[in-house]
Amino acid sequence: MTQYPPYPQSSQPPYQQPQQSGNLSYGNLPPQDRESLGSWVLVTFIMFIPLVNVIYMLVLAFGSGTSIAKRNFARASLIWMAVGIVLSIVMFMLLAAMGASFFNEISNTYGLLAF
């Protein structure tokens, strides 16, 4: 019978729930996950500024030192921005084709323009 090496034991202490005494306690959270309301207000404010929001979302999504929540929020926002841009381009092309077709039909029907 084959002898396997023993399973390595973790040196970390077991997880304990932080004691809350009426106020919010960040307890055992790492420093980058201790976010304040003000940091989220800043993120939503920057989202209203054109072009700056894209740059800021790229920094949050792919930079280091940001919390997991903000990183996931930035990645989701970038995905929705890309979807919006693609849909806007498709709609522009459809409306341009419809406008050209309408203009061509009007010019052929009423003979306004002679090519």
Results as ranks from 00 to 15, higher is better:
23 N>F: 12
68 I>C: 00
50 P>Q: 15
100 A>G: 05
18 P>V: 13
26 Y>P: 00
33 D>F: 08
10 S>A: 06
45 F>R: 03
59 V>W: 06
20 Q>E: 12
101 S>R: 11
7 Y>W: 14
10 S>E: 06
52 V>K: 03
90 V>W: 10
17 Q>A: 13
61 A>E: 08
73 F>L: 13
46 I>K: 02
102 F>S: 03
1 M>L: 07
60 L>I: 11
53 N>W: 02
75 R>V: 09
21 S>H: 10
93 M>Q: 09
70 K>A: 06
92 F>K: 02
114 A>I: 10
6 P>D: 08
113 L>Y: 01
61 A>S: 13
109 T>Q: 13
66 T>A: 03
4 Y>H: 04
52 V>L: 04
82 A>M: 14
4 Y>W: 14
6 P>N: 10
19 Q>S: 05
107 S>Y: 04
18 P>T: 11
89 I>A: 05
115 F>D: 05
76 A>S: 04
22 G>V: 15
25 S>I: 05
67 S>I: 01
64 S>L: 09
108 N>W: 05
75 R>H: 08
61 A>H: 10
21 S>Y: 05
63 G>Y: 12
106 I>K: 04
103 F>V: 02
17 Q>V: 12
75 R>N: 09
14 P>F: 04
88 S>C: 11
11 S>R: 14
49 I>Y: 08
39 S>Q: 15
16 Q>C: 03
98 M>F: 07
2 T>N: 04
37 L>N: 07
8 P>C: 09
25 S>E: 10
56 Y>A: 15
76 A>M: 09
87 L>E: 11
84 G>E: 13
30 P>L: 12
60 L>M: 03
94 L>K: 15
45 F>P: 00
45 F>A: 12
86 V>E: 11
28 N>W: 10
53 N>M: 09
91 M>V: 03
72 N>M: 05
115 F>C: 02
29 L>V: 03
60 L>N: 03
90 V>N: 06
98 M>H: 06
83 V>W: 08
89 I>F: 01
71 R>P: 00
87 L>H: 08
47 M>E: 08
11 S>L: 10
9 Q>Y: 01
115 F>R: 15
95 L>F: 01
74 A>V: 07
108 N>P: 01
16 Q>N: 07
115 F>K: 12
34 R>P: 05
73 F>Y: 13
12 Q>G: 00
54 V>E: 08
46 I>G: 01
99 G>S: 07
3 Q>G: 01
60 L>A: 05
42 L>G: 00
83 V>K: 15
46 I>V: 15
57 M>E: 02
40 W>R: 13
62 F>H: 15
20 Q>A: 11
61 A>G: 06
82 A>N: 12
81 M>F: 09
90 V>D: 02
